[in-house]
Design a protein around this nucleic acid. Structure first.
Lengths: 112, 112
DNA sequence: CGTGTAAGGAATTCTGACACG
DNA sequence: CGTGTAAGGAATTCTGACACG
């Protein structure tokens, strides 16, 4: 019945007021972290910000680090590294998938 | 790293403007279907409606049925039946789970 | 029955700036 | 650096009603 393969978690559909409620942060903080490029909400045609659930999770993480005294710039650097690691993981996954495919292909060829 | 077991699909966080964009329906239609109790958005303290991704999927289904000339009341009846079926399914699942538990419990008792 | 629309008001969001530290 | 706040304006949403059919 579903017709779209949408990862709801990443769809940018939440306005800043709801984000404020969900994260407990102030409008000022939420916008400031965007200014410092820690997250990238989208905009409607008229310019109001739209966030995803992922953005909300990220904001909570940011808030935690800020409580530990970590500066926004450091947080940004950390997050970049995280992304790289995720990239590596994807590569590994792809390689493993290739291995499996090869394995099953061979197995099939031999046994049938 | 995740700390909440939230089914994003059912979280009511989307304002009516975004719903309008995502479904292609008019504000009037979206509110009317609520009036006819086909869906149940939540409200912020100040009264603005909040929808979930599930609501959006439901609205698309409603739109399709309306195009086929189905009246809102019939749609409502159909949806109730759907819910009942889902309820039955859950019951069956629970029963099956019980069966498995019993099976493994017995198996364990005998073999250890 | 289902939907459009104009009406008036209330709530939301935006930006740029000043403040403090 | 990170955050609060007052300011003015623009965009959003709400409700109840009249209209058409």
């Amino acid at each position: 019945m579903s017709f779209e393969n949408t990862p709801y978690k990443d769809k940018k559909v939440i306005s800043i007021g709801i984000v404020r409620e969900l994260t407990g942060l102030s409008f000022r903080q939420i916008r400031y972290y965007e200014e410092k490029r820690l997250l990238f909400p989208e905009r409607t045609e008229k310019g109001t910000r739209k966030y995803s659930f992922s953005d909300i999770e990220k904001l909570v993480e940011i808030a935690n680090k800020r409580e530990d005294g970590v500066q926004t710039h450091e947080i940004r650097t950390e997050m970049k590294k995280e992304k790289e690691k995720l990239g590596e993981k994807s590569v590994l996954k792809e390689m493993l998938r290739g291995q499996f495919h090869a394995y099953f292909k061979n197995n099939h060829d031999r046994t049938s």
